[in-house]
Amino acid sequence: MDKGKTIRYSKSDRVFTYLNRVFLTFILIIVGYPLIYIISASFSSTEAVMSGKVWFLPVEPTLLGYEAVFNNSSIIKGYANSFYYTVLGTAINVMMTILGAYPLARKNFYGKNLFMGIFTFTMLFSGGLIPSYLLVRNLGLIDTRWAMVIPNAMGVWNVIIARTFLATTIPEDFYEAGELDGCSDIGFIWKITIPLSGPIIAVLTLFYAVGHWNSYFQALIYLKDAKLFPLQIILRNILIQNEVSGEMMRDISEMQRRQGIAELLKYSLIVVASIPVLVIYPFVQKYFVKGVMIGGLKG
């Protein structure tokens, strides 16, 4: 050891560093291994999966499972529906959230606390499932595409995150300067707020979009028409309730192989359903982290 050049750690520190590394490696394996297993199983042959030969890498690689997934018209339709709900729903969400957050972030908004109170109380108490369902039904939204985007048009927690961001990043001086130049309070939204809130709009878009893509509960209670079903409902029917339609099994007659393909299809379907989110995940991870941190600031 070259003394003086490197920092010398005491023995207990070295033991600690070692144990810490072991712990993190353990966590990494616990979380990562099942993910790898599922991906490998989805590319392996039915026999290999059923007889437990798949451990780490795909065994007897095949794309049969994926073929079955992409030959299924209801999965494709579900994909299209989910895409539609995600895009439309997120656009509505972001607009509503900014409209809610902007006045609440302004110092000159008289009665701000009252509005804040009205908003935040809904996070503590709600009417519950049944009254909400009856309301949506009375509004005639059941079994329409609107049922997927209107009842959840805005999240109060996200309004609070956005408000905190706006209040801390855009100084009131900007608005005062704008006012002298004759800009109205509504004009500020376009001219000051939106150009300066790129990061928070990114965070909101991601939070809302992932929420829409992954949600199934709203569709479960508000939609009866199979044409409108989002992907998650189709997934639930196939993956959890084992409703494998004949269409997927077209040219396989043998009972046992049918069972096998049904199992293989599940692994492929899990992968296909998660792809949109997992593909963008590495690029957007930092925005999610940012969103959580802004949420952590007490506004």
């Binding site: 966590i27 993910l35 992932v210 199934y216 997934l235 989110v277 995940y281 991870q285």
Partner: peptide, 13 residues
């Protein structure tokens, strides 16, 4: 990176 990933998996999946 790996431990955050499962958060984005939908409940059904």
């Amino acid at each position: 990176m790996i431990t955050y990933a499962p958060h984005f998996i939908s409940m059904v999946v």
